[in-house]
Design a protein around this nucleic acid. Structure first.
Lengths: 120, 120
DNA sequence: ATACGTGCAAACGCTTTGCACTCTC
DNA sequence: GAGAGTGCAAAGCGTTTGCACGTAT
């Protein structure tokens, strides 16, 4: 754990925000101005691989990073891209998986809305 | 509807496959060899906007196009990227949306597995 | 003739990567 | 002093776009 990686991890996990690599990069440079963008991407990748954080691909927008590595659904504002975590009764998905007769290795559920702030 | 757009639409809707732009481009050039990649992207975009087909963003892989424009879940092979359509009892999502007390403008549900072919 | 669509190639945005250097153990 | 991690800049990849030309009304 280098200073850089520790900082990046701290930024992702400190707040419930789901930030983009660029946002993390900007925040991190307040503390380590020499930090390189590549280092941010590299470390985010490593943290994801290590199961410490989660990457959220965003449909035509930069990916965002979630401090909670466990699978759970997200509520996404279609206007500003803000992401909120949802809690999902596992029971909800079970019947669907059962119908398939297929072992499911994971899932991804995104709900879209216009957040109160954007609704005005 | 030009010849090119008609062809692209036909390729997407003819088969249940969820093809990438590149695959569609290759297939289309068998019929119109002069077809440009840009034309494929442009027309796919227009068809999506017109609500005739649906674009499926694929998490770090090229997008795929679905002949069914209606929202429905997908079963995706993590190894080869193959996509199958699922039918989702609307009733399943309703309680979740209700809990939010938020108007949902859309959803996206992806289930992941290793398809029989890849499982060997 | 007028508007829309095409082919081509260059640009774009996000992300990854090769490299030489610098830490750390 | 060996191995991992960094900063930098260039490349990569899927996709988009500006432009001049073609094509269909």
């Amino acid at each position: 754990m280098t200073r850089q990686r520790e900082l990046i991890y701290r930024i992702v996990t400190a707040a419930p925000e789901h930030r983009t690599a660029e946002e993390i990069y900007d925040l991190a440079r307040e503390e380590i101005p020499s930090l390189a963008r590549g280092t941010v991407y590299r470390n985010l990748g490593l943290l994801v691989q290590a199961g410490q954080i989660r990457k959220l691909e965003m449909d035509g927008a930069p990916a965002r990073y979630d401090r909670d590595p466990l699978t759970h659904p997200h509520l996404i504002c279609q206007r500003c891209g803000r992401v909120e975590d949802l809690t999902m009764p596992e029971a909800l998905l079970a019947p669907l998986a059962e119908d398939l007769g297929e072992p499911i290795t994971g899932y991804e559920l995104k709900l879209y809305h216009i957040c109160p702030a954007c609704r005005g």
